[in-house]
Amino acid sequence: MSTILIVTEIQNGALREASYELAAIAQKLDGASVKSVVIGQGVDALAAEFASKGGGEVFVADDPALAHYSVEAHGTAIRAAVEASGADLVLLSNTPSGWDVAPRIAAALDAAFVSDCFDITLDGGKPVCRRRVFNGKLNATLATSADKVVATVQPGATAAFEGSTDGSVSKLDVAIDAGGLKARFVEIKQSAATGVDLTKAEVIVSGGRGVGDPEKFSEVIKPLADALGGAMGASRPVVDAGWLPHEYQVGSSGQTVQPKLYIACGISGAIQHLVGMKSSNFIIAVNKDPDAPIFEIADLGVVGDLFEVIPALTKAITAAKG
């Protein structure tokens, strides 16, 4: 690997933490020169900041058409940066915009592509990527053999780069034909405030696909939540199936919660669920599969049938309260 290009991302007017995580990966790969691209409108200051904090030689793609993420406009800017940098490894974060544009860039470059890596190392100069498969139940190692490699990195998998570096900033010429775009950004719709605010609950009892059907939520999960004076939560498949409304969903596309106690019942522990609850003070997991990834982050684990364990627990708690 001779040159790495970091594709940074801006969120709420600042560079995302995930961009500094890419810098940490790039900086630790031996002998590579690090370059970056900052894409947006009026982003010179952010580019200067990134150049001094691990970004190396930073290109700025500044255009009104880049103010919001748009797959074609951002894709054009990224490809211009790949060309200008001569990069052979292009790193993006596996965020909604990263996963949208990165495979497209890889196809355009006829490059190797690996998504959602938690680790990238070099073997004989070629990137070796490690990532989860089967929703976190197994890890895979992938070898790449191509002149160019595009990879996305799972946010939060690596500590952010914290050192200071000598970098530089230069302007990147990108010709975006704003009128010719076939995919257009319209607006961001924030979800309307809802009745259930899980972020304030001290105790959350969450059920997953393992709960099996909506009746079981009211028969098994809700009584435990009530006994503990807590709230009920859910994983995504429960909400997708219409068993509970969206406001109960915990995870990357639901609520991020931090209760004193989180009890996960019949939830396997996919990363998108974990990011929403892993900061809970204490986690108890009940799952019949001893290899379920949820046990990796739980403090206490019960390998067993939730339909036996949870009713017994509800009874014991009711008894303990007298």
Partner: peptide, 16 residues
């Protein structure tokens, strides 16, 4: 250009 060379259960860290 990409091939899976190994697949394995995640290493057991400090689990529950």
């Amino acid at each position: 250009k990409v091939s899976v060379t190994q697949i394995a259960p995640p290493p057991k860290g400090d689990t529950a």
